[in-house]
Design a protein around this nucleic acid. Structure first.
Lengths: 362, 362
DNA sequence: CCGCGCACTGTAAACGTTTACGGCGATTGA
DNA sequence: TCAATCGCCGTAAACGTTTACAGTGCGCGG
């Protein structure tokens, strides 16, 4: 047991005042004469007094803490989201409680426990069952969900997975003339991926093509992308382009294709999702879709804070926009014009609204 | 203000017992007759009672929370460390409070605040000034530092940066015969990097060579590595090998060198540090040094937990071992023998203790 | 000289638990 | 039969704050 620090009483005794006065001085409010203030301050300093979070929390009935539960810390995406969330939380004077639920045997119990350690909870993706979320909401714990479909009565913030995927796949079909495409990535329990798949399907139908009947299943990791590449090479009919559920899959895909001598994008084009930091530096640079991961976290924190303060005016749902980043892996080409590291950001020659963002090296 | 939930008193009244009995039933201890137990349980259920963390924390004088402060969430390294830390914390029934201090205006104040919201603190790297750490320690808050030099009286866990760098650089000098090397990476405020530089220096002296007078300064990011590459190309005398402070720098380095037509490793060899997930998949695959990031986090949590429990037998310092991972970017070559994705893990032909860990593709 | 407001400070009641201690019947042993 | 034990449960005192309320003493206008 940790040695207990000095309390209001001990400071009060030393300063020869009441605990109320010490409390006021410690928080710098109330009318205090200069004389007693300095005396109390001296006592606080002498005793190295620090107000107990316990006592405060008990009477204020708030923890000063925001909780966020997410699948796991793997990959740059979650890091970014959490970072955005943290920035807002800290700015509002709140601490951040995190829970990576993926690996946990009893995630539900943990979330329940977290619910009464935090003033509000942000719940990410499909980590937690809807039933539990609803239950928590009925307990009156402020909740906002993120990166998933909205639940009735619970504020939600997500990213537009559908429209940008539709745009990207349309780009592949219409501008590049690809006819046979595959989608790689698990869509069960992954709301984001499901929407991407829907955009993929829709682009086909819009172009009068038949999409594959189902996605090629794959975890969202590099090695899974490698396995998927092998699987695709064994397919009776080779696709001309592969739309991957995220950048890691795409990266595993291209490196494996290259390793077995298939040229990307000349023989098979590959695209990713997320615009991860490394996407710009793969060979070839990855055409992908940028999503505002940081902003997702920030927006969620902002809404959660508002919900806690019961400001009332908390938007029920916000969806952040995404944009295709056209690089070389889809088959686009560039005119290098400078010696090094110039990042062009100009209207895409192919499609309105898309962006050419390519590292140009002479 | 959140609607307050039912308290012990209300449950007690409904069940017709005292609050002490409810408390005992709720925690499942003490001798309670079956009859009252079921009655109390029913009342708890009816009212949807959940014990207040505030009340509990106040009387038990513990938060049930571990805090970890680290620079930022960027890159796979920190994610891994934190994940390891979290696994242990959760397993011990503790919640996890995190604080990314890098971007904060008043990191010190935040850490101070965290200190009385958590039962113990893990402090990573050089994020927080030694003075503050000592001050916290004097406040009797359990602290263990990590990924940095040990402070007197404060348990520390770190990774061996020196020996493996020495081994790797010796490999470059002795096995490959490189004579002119550079080290890239900032060593100020980065205890880990400083140790790596020392290993680099030592390898030179052991071989009777003069090391460069100082490291080439660079942030630990991809783009900084790119800039460093340009700088190196402008040097009067080109190095034969470049030892980078981490994998991101190395990755930026190789991609830029390749882009300007310098062949890696044939003209310039490059090595990294960390054995990041992507290191295996760069072109050429990156020779680097693996450090047990996850284990670092776990070990830290374990020691912190022990320290809190005052088990006494908490080791004062543990240093985790690292190992060079020899791939192709240092100039080593391989005999591909299988069609795909076989990871060989066999004794290095070059040097005792090093490891060949290469993705072999036919 | 009286009373009033003002600046300052103290009293005490919350906040919701845990737990030492004691009480009360019923059982048991002598 | 009486005391000791045991099982069960209630009383009340912490734990360390905040804050409504109630004083003080003092200056000042009437």
């Amino acid at each position: 047991m940790r040695a207990k620090g000095p309390t209001l009483y001990e400071v009060a005794e030393r300063a020869g005042v009441s605990i109320a006065t010490v409390s006021r001085v410690a928080r710098g409010l109330g009318q205090i004469s200069l004389e007693t203030r300095t005396r109390v301050l001296a006592a606080i300093d002498d005793l190295n007094y620090h107000p107990s979070h316990f006592g405060r929390a008990l009477v204020k009935r708030q923890h000063g803490t925001l909780g966020i539960v997410f699948p796991g810390l793997r990959g740059p995406y979650y890091s970014e989201v959490i970072h955005g969330f943290e920035v807002e939380a800290i700015a509002a004077g709140m601490s951040l409680l995190i829970l990576g639920a993926e690996h946990l045997p009893s995630a539900d119990a943990q979330v329940l426990g977290m619910a009464d350690r935090a003033d509000g909870l942000a719940i990410m993706g499909g980590t937690i069952g809807d039933a539990l979320i609803q239950r928590l909401a009925r307990r009156d714990v402020p909740i906002v969900t993120m990166a998933r479909a909205k639940l009735p009565g619970i504020p939600n913030v997500r990213v537009d997975n559908y429209a940008s995927t539709l745009a990207l796949v349309t780009h592949l079909i219409h501008e590049h003339g690809y006819r046979r495409l595959e989608f790689v990535g698990n869509i069960v329990g992954a709301p984001d991926a499901l929407e991407r798949w829907r955009g993929f399907e829709r682009a086909h139908r819009d172009a009068g093509l038949d999409p594959p009947s189902e996605p090629l299943s794959s975890a969202f990791e590099h090695t899974s992308g490698m396995q998927a590449a092998l699987h695709i090479l064994d397919l009776p009919e080779r696709p001309r382009a592969i739309v991957c559920g995220n950048d890691e899959i795409a990266s595993g895909m291209t490196s494996t294709l290259a390793a077995v001598g298939v040229r990307v994008p000349h023989e098979i084009a590959v695209t990713g999702w997320d615009n991860s930091p490394f996407a710009r530096y793969t060979t070839p640079p990855l055409t992908t879709i940028a999503q505002p991961a940081r902003a997702l976290g920030q927006q969620t924190a902002t809404m959660l804070l508002a919900l806690i303060a019961r400001n009332g005016d908390v938007e029920e749902e916000v969806v952040l926009s995404t944009e295709p980043i056209i690089r070389a892996s889809c088959g686009c080409r560039f005119d290098p014009s400078t010696r090094f590291a110039i990042v062009n950001r100009q209207p895409n020659s192919h499609k309105e609204g898309a962006i050419i963002d390519e590292l140009v090296l002479a």
